[in-house]
Structures are given as C-alpha cells and as structure tokens.
C-alpha cells in the first residue's frame, strides 16, 4: 500500500479513485483576481494546461498540491482538502518547477535526491536504495557524488524530477518543465514525463509535449475557457491567441 502513516484526521478518508477536484475555486493575490470560478474534476492520466503568460497557469498548478490555497472554494485531492490536510496532499502530489536551479537544495546529486525521503523519515538503508534506483533511472547514476552545479541544464531538470519521484507521489504536477531547456533536453524530459505511471498535470508552452494527452485545459484571464481533447483544445488556444 502507498500509505506509510495513517491520516491523522479520522474524518478525512482518502479515496485514490476520486482524483483531483476543484469546487468553485477562485484565487486572488491581494484584491487582484487571478483565478475565477474554476470547477473541474481531474481523473485522466495525462492533463495539459496551456495559456498566455500571466493567465494564471502557475497559480492553478500550485493549487493542486496546496502550495497555494484557494481564497474561496475547495481543492480536494483523493477527497482530502488541501486546506485541512496539506501535508498528506503534498505527499500525494509531487511538484516540478520550471527552474531546476531553484529546486535543487543540496550540493551534490545523491544528497539532493535523498532530501524528500529524509523529510518523510525513510530509514537510511531504504533511502540509499531508492536514491540509487532513481538516479539510475534518469541517467544520473554516474553523477551521484558530483556537485549539482556541474550538471547540464537538462541533467539538473532530470535531478529535480528524480528528487520528486523518489518520494513516490501518486500524481505529479509540472510547471513549464522544459521552458529553460534546449530541444534535445526538452525531448528527453518529455519522454521521461511520458513514461511516468503517475497521473500527470503539465503546464507548458511546448504544445508537442501534449501529444497523446487525454485532456487539455486552456486558461485565459484566470478562467478555464476550453477543456477538451488536445487537438480541439490546442486549436481553440491558437484561435484565441490570434485574436489578440
């Protein structure tokens, strides 16, 4: 089973089949509305999010694991409210940021990969085993003791992904994971994302990343203006951008 520790709150019973639910969610920074009236039920394995700069995509992504809490409405992950059970929610929903440099917090590769496991109190032996395994999976096995700042941009992003996946979340949110990478590394990261068995939500400007996705959301001015299969959603997004 996935649950290492029972949820401390007896009233909050997790049900993995429920996916991620947003109920009447709005978010504002100060008095500036950034997301308005979002109602969604995300159960598909591959969900893309597109939209112009500043449309609210990152705020949306951060709502899904409680990095941002809604100013009104509710976000539920497997039935757990992000407001009430933020720790448990974050264990279930991993998050990969755009800039790998800002999410690698330890000086060497293996140390960084182990960070989340230390936080979870995973015993040393199991930690070492899981770190070795995850580094091998992402082609970083030979770099375990290298300083993270000597990795290439692509390798850094793979390390950031490894540092999240080693914690075995059931779902992973990516916020523009390939924006800072060159074509080769962007493809590599795209392939890694494609191979994940987890539920994946990807915010991206690289539309080819969304090939084969189940569902794509188009965000505009803080609202979900399109919610469809990739082809239809991307066509709507292009039309929207051309109208500008």
């Amino acid at each position: 089973m996935r649950f290492r520790r029972p949820e401390p709150r007896p009233d909050a019973v997790a049900d993995p089949a429920r996916g991620i639910e947003l109920r009447g969610v709005s978010h504002r920074y100060g008095d500036r509305p950034v997301l308005t009236d979002v109602d969604l039920h995300l159960t598909e394995a591959r969900i893309g999010v597109v939209g112009a700069n500043g449309s609210g995509k990152s705020t949306f992504a951060r709502l899904l694991n409680g990095l941002v809490l809604p100013t009104s409405g509710q976000v539920l992950v497997d039935g757990l409210d992000t407001r009430a059970s933020v720790r448990e929610v974050r264990r279930r929903v991993g998050f990969v940021f755009q800039d790998p440099d800002a999410q690698i917090v330890h000086p060497t590769v293996a140390e960084d990969a182990a960070y989340g496991l230390e936080n979870q109190g995973v015993p040393t032996a199991e930690r070492a085993e899981r770190v070795t395994e995850v580094l091998a999976r992402y082609g970083l096995a030979g770099h375990a003791d290298h300083p993270a700042h000597l990795l290439s941009g692509g390798q850094k992003q793979l390390l950031a992904i490894a540092g999240v996946l080693v914690m075995r979340p059931a779902r992973v949110v990516f916020d523009e994971p390939t924006t800072l990478l060159d074509l080769v590394n962007a493809r590599r990261v795209a392939r890694v994302i494609g191979e994940l068995e987890q539920q994946v939500v990807v915010v991206t400007h690289q539309l080819d990343l969304l090939d084969g996705f189940d569902r794509v959301l188009v965000v505009d001015g803080g609202r979900i203006v399109e919610d469809a299969a990739p082809r239809a959603a991307i066509a709507a997004y292009r039309a929207l951008m051309e109208r500008r």
Binding site: R90, F97, A102, Q120
Partner: peptide, 13 residues
Amino acid sequence: TISEALDARGADD
C-alpha cells in the same frame, strides 16, 4: 521558488 520547492518536498514533514 526555493521555499516553495522545500515545501513541496515535505520540508515541514
């Protein structure tokens, strides 16, 4: 972003 990344990986756990 770093503080968010720490949170996302369970720094408070």
